[in-house]
Amino acid sequence: MSVPERLAPLLAQFDVGRERLVRRLVGPTVDSGDGEPVAVPPLTDDEYLWEPVAGCWSVRRHADGPGPGATVLVGAGEWGRDGGRPHPYPPPVTTIAWRLEHLAEMLAGRADHLTGAHAHTEEEYVVPGTAAEGVAAFERAASAWREVLTGADDEALDAVGRSTYPYGSDPEDPLIETVWWVDQELLHHGAEIALLRDLYRAGPLRQGTPAGT
């Protein structure tokens, strides 16, 4: 089945964003932006859970309870993601673990609510507690989302509520708008994760010393 013309650039953008994020997480290199490969070490568990400021939201063991400002740890298994609605304002800074889990859950959930059993819930999603598990979960979810999109024709792209994912506006939106939204989620959270990796590598904040001193 051929990909609709208006879907093709969104799929290409997703592919680029996904590859760049994965390379930024596991290396061995990432494109600097001008074609030069820059060495990247694999994400460690310490970095995955690093909280650069007080009051961060992260993923935590259920036995330890929610972090500051959170009212619940969402997810199944040993670990959960800080959450609670309505979200506090201003929004808390979130760790790499939180952002990566958010992306993976969103992608897995939307894949299921597009062509799967329409049964995915945040509460039943198993939250990864280590860097390796977090990256692997993201990769699986990204592949699942990419695969279901290849079966979307123009009629599906125009259908309102084709995705029934319950944690967004999907039920009120044409599928093409959901596809666009997922791309921007990947791109902006991917950029945030890359920045956190830069800050972690720079060191002073991790050691409790203000930057620039």
Score class of each variant (00 low, 15 high):
D173I: 13
P86Y: 10
A156C: 11
G161S: 11
L49C: 06
L7P: 11
A12W: 05
E5Q: 14
D183N: 15
T213W: 14
F14N: 04
H118P: 07
D112R: 07
W57R: 05
H113C: 08
P91S: 08
P92I: 07
T150N: 12
V127P: 00
R23C: 05
P174F: 15
D64M: 10
R197W: 05
M106G: 00
F138T: 01
A191E: 05
T71M: 09
Q207A: 15
S169P: 13
W181S: 03
V160P: 14
A132P: 05
S169W: 10
V160C: 14
I176G: 11
A70N: 02
G203F: 12
D45L: 04
R140G: 04
P171G: 14
V182G: 01
A194H: 09
G168R: 07
W79H: 04
P166F: 11
R24W: 06
Q207Y: 15
L175K: 04
G151I: 14
P204D: 09
A136P: 04
P166K: 08
L149I: 14
A117K: 12
G67H: 04
I176L: 11
W180P: 06
E47L: 07
D15V: 06
V38A: 13
G75I: 01
R20Q: 07
G65R: 14
P68N: 07
G35C: 09
A117D: 13
W57L: 04
